[in-house]
């Protein structure tokens, strides 16, 4: 494996009085697909959102420990720049009630790109990478809310890609989708593997087994185990991991 792109050191997270993440030490490598699995309420989503500081939108959020992105402490990186570099796909497809084109162009516009031709090519490129271009190229200027759930989620991926991130976080991206849509998203992820670091939080162990290269198991806010996906699913070191992947609980 290559260089480390994200590293957390003794990361502890609290919401009010609740201790959500406990001492997370984790290294994420460049251009890998890392899965994070674990039962509900084990802190997976919170961990994901800590990486681009989205948790700070909540009022009683409190965080200890350090997170490094490309060797820099993320505290020292401007939030907007950090979020541009580390994009996120939310659990439910969340598109803005504007056209497909405007949804994808929103990010680049925010970051100062005004030229129409440049925007056009960014939109097309992003939609192609998200495997959506063929389906929507004739109706770019219709409302994005008219798309199906799976298409909306791929539109969200395209929207994230349009701001040229280095890392893409997926927060249970297929939880509301049918198997075919899920398959398409996993395809897109595989295709993106060469140029992006991807972190996939999922409740679905089968998806993690299919789509990831390394996998981390979290339980009650603790990082129980992290290893190559094949190992996690065949011969994990921790008993709890073994029970979880075999479906004993969770």
């Amino acid at each position: 494996m290559s260089e480390v792109i994200i590293k957390t050191v003794n990361l502890n997270v609290h919401f009010g009085k609740q201790h959500i993440l406990k001492n997370i030490n984790l290294e994420i490598y460049k251009n890998e697909i890392l899965g994070i699995i674990g039962p509900a309420n084990s802190g997976k989503t919170t961990f994901l959102r800590a990486l681009n500081r989205l948790n700070y939108l909540f009022k009683d959020y409190y965080q200890e420990g350090e997170i490094f992105f490309a060797q820099k402490n993320i505290k020292d990186i401007n939030d907007n720049l950090l979020r541009k570099k580390i994009g996120i796909i939310f659990a439910l497809p969340q598109v803005l009630p504007i056209t497909i084109y405007e949804n994808v162009a929103y990010g680049p516009k925010i970051h100062g790109i005004k030229d129409k031709d440049t925007l056009d090519s960014i939109v097309e490129k992003a939609l192609r990478k998200a495997y959506l271009w063929e389906e929507v190229k004739d109706r770019l200027h219709t409302l994005a809310t008219k798309l199906s759930g799976g298409q909306q989620q791929r539109l969200c991926i395209a929207r994230t890609l349009a701001v040229e991130p280095e890392v893409i976080l997926y927060d249970e991206p297929c939880s509301g989708l049918d198997p075919i849509s899920t398959q398409k998203i996993e395809e897109a992820m595989r295709e993106l593997k060469n140029n992006y670091t991807q972190i996939l939080v999922t409740n679905n162990t089968k998806q993690a087994a299919r789509a990831t290269e390394r996998c981390a198991f979290m339980l009650m806010g603790e990082l129980v185990e992290i290893d190559r996906t094949a190992i996690i699913f065949t011969s994990p070191k921790d008993k709890r991991t073994d029970e979880y992947v075999r479906g004993v609980f969770g």
């Binding site: 979020r83 994009g87 990010g107």
Partner: peptide, 15 residues
């Protein structure tokens, strides 16, 4: 969620 989307793409608060 609208605010979340925008912020997660790197927009500033005012944007």
């Amino acid at each position: 969620s609208f605010r979340e989307i925008s912020l997660s793409l790197g927009a500033t608060k005012w944007q």
